[in-house]
Computed example of a mutant assay.
Amino acid sequence: MINIAERHQYILNKIQTDGTIDVQSLCKKLKVSSVTIRKDLKLLEDKNLLFRTHGGATLNNPYTVDKPVNEKEHLQSAEKMKIGTMAAELIEENDSIIIASGTTVLAMARCIKPKGNLTVITSALNVALELLHHNDIEIIQLGGLLRKSSSSVAGPYSDNVLGNVFCSKLYLGVDGIDLEFGLTTTNAYEAHLNRQMIDSSQKIIVLADSTKFGKRGFGRICGIEEVDHIITDSGIPEQTRKNLQSMGIKVSII
């Protein structure tokens, strides 16, 4: 049986190679109990060598923090624009859609070329302003408490409107996508509003660049199984893509 130092070295080598590790695989390989592995992971996390997750660990910090929208807009901007272009092409003639908040859905709004008359319900002020110059887009701006960091609103006023409509598609931006924990955002009020949007939509389309995978925000929106379609970039881990597709989720890569 190998000692604790050898176990720790194996774990660190494995996570450096794969990026993530899971407890059960380590138990089989190292022939120790799950309790022992979890203690090992805690010790290594205390030394800032990895981050523990549900059922394993990762090399990168899985927890997201709230950043101002003008700062996030410059992150992965090229990928967001390509994702937005593909997403906008899914809008049908005389469609009625919901657009949530976030810099990726804002990129999509900039790419919209309406076919016939389009109705857009949105919580995001910047999305509404982006669409304002289109004469054939009817915009319903949700009201509520304004979150300055995201230029979007949330609260019971928005819930009242969403409870009385049903749209063909929801275009949803998120801060984190975790196969076990689901979709998340950094704000609990926004997570609740996104949940209401899901209930008012036939199809859920998530727009997220590859840096969002394996991340978790404070507010849980829903389980990953509720998503119909994810549009992302080629940085998504291959195993993650396969796992999503095995769950019946369409994954489009720009």
Rank of each mutant, 00 (worst) to 15 (best):
Q141C: 13
S101P: 03
E89A: 15
G173M: 02
N94S: 06
L41R: 02
L49V: 00
A107Y: 06
L49S: 09
G102I: 02
V105G: 04
T211P: 08
L172V: 02
V165H: 00
S151P: 01
Q9C: 12
K47G: 07
I231M: 03
Y157F: 15
T240R: 06
L26E: 08
Y157T: 15
G102N: 07
E138R: 15
E45Q: 12
I15H: 00
T64D: 01
T53D: 03
I249H: 07
C27N: 03
L179Y: 01
K203G: 07
N135K: 14
K115A: 05
F51N: 03
K250T: 14
I204S: 06
G248Q: 07
Q24A: 12
K29C: 10
E180Q: 15
S168H: 14
M86H: 11
L162G: 00
Q239G: 11
H229M: 11
A57Y: 02
T36E: 03
E89V: 10
G173I: 01
S33G: 11
E180A: 14
D228S: 12
D40V: 03
E73P: 04
L146C: 06
L145H: 15
K67P: 04
I236A: 04
G143M: 11
K80R: 04
D136E: 13
H74V: 09
R38S: 04
L50A: 05
K31M: 11
I97A: 02
A100Q: 05
V161T: 06
